[in-house]
Design a protein around this nucleic acid. Structure first.
Lengths: 112, 112
DNA sequence: GTAATGTATTACTCATCGGTAAGACGTTAG
DNA sequence: CTAACGTCTTACCGATGAGTAATACATTAC
């Protein structure tokens, strides 16, 4: 084990890059995607760059991959993601809970 | 406004560094602290290094400073912090909410 | 079999970042 | 006033990271 790196370390490092956050968003919105499909969403980025980011996310345990033919399908590892985030979230819950409530009310009002 | 940097950008960049996360934790736990008091918590770091981190956090809007004599007191800017975090949290709520619930139950059980 | 596709890997460049040291600046103490 | 203190700033160094290009490795198509 590595006591000074309580799993949140890798999580926040992974979240630090906008490309990786966008990759996570895409996987969350559209389920499992191949490297090529993901790369298509980043016109000014080369495919191997995406692959490298995916390797990083995979090392952080945030995504999982399964081979499908000659392509590799990546999906969000929801459990690992949540488990890494929850401890930190719990500490700051009093801070964000109110803001999250306000967001919910706004969404309701906008959709009513 | 800066469209490509939706406020979450600076937030996650700020959270990426363990020292800055620890600074935020200290401010959350102990209220307003001076640079010196914070620096005392980081034995293997020079005071100006802490100051630099604080400048970063201040630029990200996560902390606010007020002069008190010749020292500067830093405190968590709870509103800005929550507002920056909430939109991203909302997107992933289905993922972390279950894990957070489990944490809560564990805490209850452990404290009973 | 060979060719073409999809992904991973490596080596490289360039920018950024964390950290330090040294000095500047303002503030309180003498 | 001068001296000491607390913080900020600047310049610098070393390490890390994102990005590309080229290559290697599988897998499917022909």
């Amino acid at each position: 084990m590595s006591p000074p790196s309580p799993a949140g370390d890798e999580l926040f490092r992974a979240l630090a890059d906008p490309t990786r956050r966008r990759i996570l968003d895409l996987l969350r919105e559209r389920g499992a995607l191949s490297v090529g499909e993901l790369a298509a969403e980043f016109p000014d980025l080369v495919a191997s760059g995406i692959s490298k980011h995916l390797m990083g996310l995979r090392a952080a345990g945030l995504v999982a991959a399964t081979r499908h033919g000659r392509q590799q399908l990546y999906r969000l590892d929801a459990d690992a993601f949540a488990d890494a985030l929850a401890p930190w979230l719990a500490k700051y819950e009093p801070y964000w809970s109110a803001a999250l409530e306000r967001l919910r009310k706004l969404a309701e009002g906008g959709e009513a």
